[in-house]
Design a protein around this nucleic acid. Structure first.
Lengths: 141, 141
DNA sequence: ATTTATGCAAATCGTTTGCAAACCT
DNA sequence: AGGTTTGCAAACGATTTGCATAAAT
């Protein structure tokens, strides 16, 4: 994975520094998208501004995706699709927790096809979509 | 529409003040979700804090929904589903513009069914979903 | 040697809150 | 009067930026 990431950064004219490697390592280890606060706690001595700057670089290089939580005041970050595959998010409306989910392939396919049509008939060129499933997690039921 | 809104506020123990009426009026007139900045410009003398407070009241009463834009740093507001019907958003990844769209009924229905299954098998109780279609609008093609 | 990344502190931006005056019933 | 809403200013929290130092090529 690190090799792939390094390659993507190189293609974008960016270095794969120790800090970036550490951040990517955390994201690889995490079972779900992480907030900046979580990332900061995971590594002592990690500085906010550097973290934000590196996340921006990683996003620009297509290595990381920024995803919105329930209350959109705190962003979360996860590895990009090339690493995690296409998926969506289950968001708990009570505690804000997030889990990754994938749709059945046929449904995802139908959806994709429908969206392309809907987008083009509105004059939009479809790039991608994001789908969040809002509900209550096991603990918050 | 204002009658319906008044009723919902009343049910929530809230008044339908002139300011709230004005805000709802703007949202009714708008062809798409509006930002706080847009709402502020639309009415001279409208104060930020009052606007935010009233939006909170309207959201709590189920009259308004808050929706996330592309770069989730600026929220947008629109009338709730009871007024606009269930729909999704086309978001321009270049200019950030937003348009409302609906999926074909059968697709929406299949999606709903699939999501319920996916959610429950992850231990979540489905509440609702949000689907954003990201692309480039006509002008940004 | 020159460019790029980092840490630290200060600045920004959207949003929220405290408080006193205005409003409604 | 008694509780609610409003305006204004200050407070907040997430994110960004300026600048001097450290690291990488």
């Amino acid at each position: 994975m690190h090799l792939e990431v390094a390659e993507r950064l190189r293609r974008d004219g960016q270095r794969y520094t120790a800090l970036r490697r550490a951040i990517v390592g955390e994201l690889i280890a995490a079972p779900r998208p992480l907030t900046v606060r979580e990332l900061l706690k995971s590594r002592r001595g990690l500085v906010q501004s550097s973290l934000y700057r590196n996340l921006a670089v990683l996003i620009a290089a297509g290595v990381v995706d920024r995803v919105a939580g329930m209350q959109e005041d705190t962003a979360r970050y996860e590895l990009a699709e090339f690493a995690l595959g296409h998926h969506h998010h289950l968001v708990c409306m009570s505690c804000g927790d997030i889990a990754d989910v994938a749709l059945p392939k046929t449904l995802e396919h139908d959806l994709e096809r429908g969206l392309r049509k809907v987008a083009s008939s509105a004059g939009y060129a479809l790039d991608h979509h994001r789908l969040d499933v809002i509900g209550r997690c096991r603990r918050c039921r």
